[in-house]
Measured scan of single mutants.
Amino acid sequence: MPSETPQAEVGPTGCPHRSGPHSAKGSLEKGSPEDKEAKEPLWIRPDAPSRCTWQLGRPASESPHHHTAPAKSPKILPDILKKIGDTPMVRINKIGKKFGLKCELLAKCEFFNAGGSVKDRISLRMIEDAERDGTLKPGDTIIEPTSGNTGIGLALAAAVRGYRCIIVMPEKMSSEKVDVLRALGAEIVRTPTNARFDSPESHVGVAWRLKNEIPNSHILDQYRNASNPLAHYDTTADEILQQCDGKLDMLVASVGTGGTITGIARKLKEKCPGCRIIGVDPEGSILAEPEELNQTEQTTYEVEGIGYDFIPTVLDRTVVDKWFKSNDEEAFTFARMLIAQEGLLCGGSAGSTVAVAVKAAQELQEGQRCVVILPDSVRNYMTKFLSDRWMLQKGFLKEEDLTEKKPWWWHLRVQELGLSAPLTVLPTITCGHTIEILREKGFDQAPVVDEAGVILGMVTLGNMLSSLLAGKVQPSDQVGKVIYKQFKQIRLTDTLGRLSHILEMDHFALVV
Rank of each mutant, 00 (worst) to 15 (best):
E40K: 13
G259L: 00
L184D: 00
S32K: 05
K97T: 05
K271A: 11
G11N: 10
D198W: 04
I127E: 05
R58N: 09
G26H: 07
T260A: 08
P215F: 15
G96V: 09
E37S: 14
V189H: 07
A71G: 13
L268W: 00
T68F: 14
C275G: 06
N212R: 14
I264V: 15
L184F: 06
P273K: 15
P6K: 08
D221F: 09
R125K: 11
G100Q: 10
A60R: 11
L154H: 01
I92G: 05
L106V: 11
H67Y: 01
T87F: 01
K75G: 14
E34T: 10
A253E: 08
E270S: 05
K211V: 13
I92Y: 07
L28M: 13
T135K: 10
D86Q: 10
P145Q: 04
R276G: 03
D140K: 07
K271Y: 08
E9H: 10
G151H: 00
F111A: 02
D245L: 02
D79R: 09
G205Y: 07
E270Y: 09
L124V: 11
A48R: 10
G274A: 11
H17F: 07
A159I: 03
A8M: 10
N228H: 03
Y163P: 00
F197Y: 03
L181T: 03
K211Q: 13
R196A: 08
V178H: 02
H203I: 03
D79E: 13
E37L: 14
N113L: 05
F99A: 14
L220S: 03
V252E: 07
S73K: 10
H66S: 10
I142T: 04
I122E: 00
G185M: 00
R58K: 11
K271R: 15
S63M: 09
P41W: 10
S27G: 14
T257K: 01
L101M: 05
S61V: 03
V118E: 06
C165G: 15
S3V: 12
G26D: 12
V90S: 08
G153P: 03
D120P: 05
R121H: 02
K98E: 13
R164T: 06
P200A: 08
V189P: 07
I122K: 00
S27I: 11
S227A: 14
H67T: 08
T146E: 04
K267T: 07
S117C: 01
N228V: 00
L154N: 01
I80F: 09
L210W: 01
T262V: 11
S50Y: 07
S19P: 15
H22R: 14
K137Q: 11
G258K: 02
E187P: 09
G151E: 00
E104A: 09
K25L: 11
K30N: 11
R58L: 09
A237F: 04
G153N: 04
A183S: 12
R209Q: 14
H232K: 03
R45S: 14
Q243L: 13
F111N: 04
G20T: 09
P273E: 07
I92S: 08
T235G: 11
S174I: 00
D179Q: 01
P215A: 06
L105S: 03
G26Y: 08
E239Q: 10
N216V: 02
V10K: 13
T235V: 05
A158V: 05
E201P: 10
V178T: 06
G162R: 06
V180Q: 06
D133E: 13
Q55T: 10
D245T: 06
G153F: 03
K271P: 05
I92D: 04
V168F: 05
Q55R: 13
G11M: 04
G85M: 01
I95N: 05
E213S: 06
I84E: 07
E29S: 13
C244Q: 05
N113Y: 01
V160R: 14
L105D: 00
I142R: 01
Q242E: 15
P46T: 01
D35F: 01
E4I: 10
S73P: 13
D79V: 13
K75Y: 09
D198K: 06
H232N: 06
D129T: 08
D140I: 02
I214W: 04
S32L: 09
